[in-house]
Design a protein around this nucleic acid. Structure first.
Lengths: 200, 200
DNA sequence: TCACTTATGGATCATCCAATCCGTAATCGC
DNA sequence: GCGATTACGGATTGGATGATCCATAAGTGA
């Protein structure tokens, strides 16, 4: 049954999509409520009624991002391919997604929440994206461990080091793309990274 | 001879240092003039008289950064060591600098100017830091070429790819450190990166 | 038809923003 | 000492900010 009261006149997914694109392009702080209102067509009351606050809207926009473009990183967990191929799919796929011209360049998760406000005003915003980055870290690490188990890497390989190498490279892609570095160049950089995925 | 008029009652270097630390920690947009006034002890009139605008202050703070902590990347141009050692010094030195507890974590250049405002309001701010990143790109590339010339890398090595791999890793370090990844882990990640600095 | 609940549009709130203005103070060349 | 020039502290500017309020509209179940 539908909830009591007047039903919403807008589609949540469409609103989250518009908000996501704005936050993606400009970041949380630089995106004003006036811009969000213009992009979504909603009034302040509707926005706050549905999401509680600008911060709440951002968090839901991040979830929307993860269900869409941000889901591209999920291939790292694909157990049907070799760990090495999973890493390759993660990196190449991430570049393709971030460079896609149908949305802002780069990755929302990699670019957001890197600055700190002394008053910890928007701690929730930072926490939302740092948690996603931490999740990526965990998944990459699991893949490295699978690589060792599969014999692709040395048994005594530095798990944390290899994980950090891959993740740091992944996080840097967004800035590279925003600086205008060609996606094709970054694809070849992935090949260079994967040279390290081997036994010594 | 001293310039005509009443002399400044403050030290430019101290003011730039304080402003740099604020911009470093919080970024350009999130740093308010009120914070800058409190940190520097100057009035609005003095700040605007000396730097013209908030943007002008940021640009000079970036220059101040490059003369100080940001100068750590200069080791990549050291011709007295092997290209491989120059890259190692760049990456290890950058981690040490960024993790130093005497200032904000991460790199001002890597973290700033990655977001785009539609009105291009602070295009000068972005341009200031993107130019520095581009300069790093050029210097890393030159080092890769030296590596080929020195026989450390294959003659047909993918110069742009290796350059992008190193730079992307470098850019990702700031986010990793802000996320709490240990500097020691990143140092071992550098070792993993350098496994690629070899002939096939 | 009648409460009840929720959503909407638009006006409005106090606050903060970057930037400017003004009267005064300090140092110059002369 | 004197005019010119520059810097200073502090108040103030117009505008934008995130968030809230209120009257009204549009649905519900009884």
């Amino acid at each position: 049954m539908p909830p009591a009261g007047r039903p919403r006149a807008f589609d949540m997914e469409c609103v989250l999509e518009a908000a996501m694109l704005l936050f993606w392009e400009q970041g949380y702080e630089a995106t004003s409520l006036a811009q969000l209102r213009a992009a979504t067509g909603l009034s302040s009351a509707s926005l706050y009624g549905a999401f509680g606050s600008k911060e709440g809207l951002f968090k839901q926009a991040v979830e929307h991002y993860m269900k869409g473009p941000g889901g591209a990183t999920g291939v790292i967990e694909d157990q049907t391919v070799s760990p090495r191929e999973a890493v390759a799919a993660l990196l190449h796929g991430s570049i393709d997604m971030q460079a896609d011209s149908s949305h802002p360049v780069g990755c929302l998760i990699a670019l957001s929440g890197t600055m700190r406000a002394p008053g910890e005003e928007h701690a929730g915003v930072r926490a939302a994206v740092t948690a996603r980055r931490e999740a990526d870290r965990v998944r990459i690490r699991a893949c490295v461990e699978r690589g060792i188990a599969a014999g692709e890497l040395d048994a005594d390989a530095d798990i944390d080091g290899v994980t950090a190498m891959i993740h740091s490279f992944l996080l840097g892609l967004s800035t590279q793309l925003r600086d205008g570095v060609a996606a094709t160049t970054l694809h070849t950089a992935v090949d260079a990274v994967l040279l390290n995925w081997r036994r010594s």
